[in-house]
Computed example of a mutant assay.
Amino acid sequence: MTKIKLLIIFLVSYSFTQLAFADDTAEQLEALSDSKWEWMAAKEIAPLQQLFHPNAKFVHMSGSWKTDRELEIIKSGSIWYKKAAIHDRATEVVGDTGVVWSRITLTAHVRGNDVENEFTVTEVFSKVDGDWKILGLTFSKVRDTHEIEH
């Protein structure tokens, strides 16, 4: 076998390994996203504090703020994320960065009322010291017919 054939075999094998790694990482990020919704619904601050990077930014319909305020909002219940029904999701991983787009129906308790809204939520993850951290979480109001391109 020539050196070029060996090199091609190595590169193809390496590419498939990288694709499998990206798939595993995407599944891990999606599981973290699912856990995040459960923790938010249960107002479990400790695991959220571990998941949210201290300098993360959260963008809502009513404004944007950093981690400390988001955790206080969850803890106090001023926004109670009761249930996020996920209808569609796409995840991309590039190196130590991952983005999870989820089309959801969010049931929340806000200012004394239960409300339901359709959102596409964009979560930006980064691997920091070996752990995945959320750097950004953005709620984009969409119609219930909105589709995420895969």
Rank of each mutant, 00 (worst) to 15 (best):
Ala20Gly: 04
Leu29Glu: 01
Ile8Cys: 04
Asp34Gly: 05
Ala22Gly: 05
Ala20Lys: 15
Ala41Thr: 02
Ala26Arg: 07
Lys36Tyr: 04
Ser35Lys: 15
Ala31Cys: 02
Ala26Val: 01
Glu27Ala: 10
Trp39Lys: 00
Ser35Asn: 15
Leu11Ser: 08
Ala20Asp: 07
Trp37Tyr: 14
Ala42Trp: 05
Ala41Trp: 12
Ile9Pro: 03
Phe16Ser: 11
Glu44His: 04
Trp39Ile: 01
Leu11Ala: 06
Thr25Trp: 08
Phe21His: 15
Ser15Gly: 05
Ile8Thr: 10
Leu7Arg: 13
Ala26Asp: 06
Leu11Val: 02
Val12Arg: 11
Thr17Ser: 10
Leu6Ser: 08
Ile8Lys: 15
Ser15Ala: 10
Glu27Trp: 13
Trp37Phe: 13
Glu38Arg: 11
Ile45His: 05
Ala42His: 08
Glu44Tyr: 01
Ile45Phe: 02
Ala42Leu: 03
Leu32Gln: 03
Leu19Ile: 14
Glu44Lys: 07
Ala41Asn: 09
Leu29Arg: 04
Phe16Thr: 11
Lys36Trp: 06
Phe16Val: 11
Asp34Arg: 15
Met40Pro: 02
Phe21Asn: 14
Tyr14Ser: 12
Ser13Gly: 12
Ala22Arg: 15
Glu27Asn: 15
Tyr14Phe: 13
Ala22Thr: 06
Lys43Ser: 05
Leu19Lys: 14
Met40Gly: 01
Trp39His: 12
Ala20Leu: 11
Leu11Thr: 03
Ile8Arg: 12
Asp34Pro: 02
Ser35Cys: 01
Phe16Asn: 13
Phe21Trp: 14
Phe21Glu: 12
Ser15Gln: 08
Ser33Pro: 04
Glu38Lys: 15
Leu19Gln: 11
Ala22Tyr: 13
Leu7Thr: 13
Val12Leu: 10
Gln18Ala: 10
Leu7Tyr: 12
Met40Leu: 06
Leu6Gly: 08
Leu7His: 10
Ser15Trp: 14
Ala20Thr: 06
Ser13Gln: 03
